Simulated assay, not measured.
Amino acid sequence: MWWGGIPVVLDENGDYKSVPAVIDKDYATAKLAELVDADYLFILTAVDYVAINFGTPQQRDLTEITIEEAKNYCQEGQFASGSMRPKVEAAISFAESKKGRTAVIASLEKAPLAMMGKSGTKIV
Rank of each mutant, 00 (worst) to 15 (best):
A38N: 08
E109T: 12
A38G: 04
Q58S: 13
K17C: 12
G5I: 09
E64I: 12
D39N: 14
T121M: 05
G117H: 07
F79T: 00
Y16D: 05
A21I: 05
E64Y: 08
Y73H: 14
E12K: 15
N72G: 07
A90C: 05
S93L: 14
M1I: 10
L41M: 08
M116I: 04
E64Q: 14
L32S: 05
A38H: 11
A51W: 11
P57M: 10
D26K: 01
A28P: 05
E109P: 01
S18L: 07
E68S: 12
F54D: 04
S18H: 05
K25R: 11
T66Q: 06
K87P: 03
F94H: 00
S83H: 09
V104I: 15
G100P: 03
T66N: 02
I123N: 01
K25C: 09
I105N: 06
V19W: 10
T45D: 05
K17E: 13
I123G: 01
D24S: 10
D26F: 03
Q59W: 12
D26V: 05
L108K: 13
R101W: 07
S81M: 11
N72Q: 12
D24W: 01
E34I: 14
A28E: 05
R85I: 08
E12W: 10
Q78R: 03
F54N: 03
I92L: 06
E64V: 13
R85S: 07
D24Q: 03
S107N: 09
S81T: 14
A30N: 05
E76N: 01
P86R: 06
L113Y: 14
Y16T: 13
S18K: 10
R85K: 15
N72Y: 11
E76W: 00
G55F: 08
T56K: 11
L108M: 14
V50D: 04
D61Q: 12
P57W: 09
L35E: 13
V47N: 11
A38L: 06
M116S: 11
T45N: 08
E12T: 13
A91G: 14
Y16V: 09
L32G: 02
G77A: 02
D26G: 01
G14V: 02
S107A: 11
M116D: 10
A90N: 00
E68D: 14
A46E: 15
A111T: 13
V124E: 11
I6Y: 09
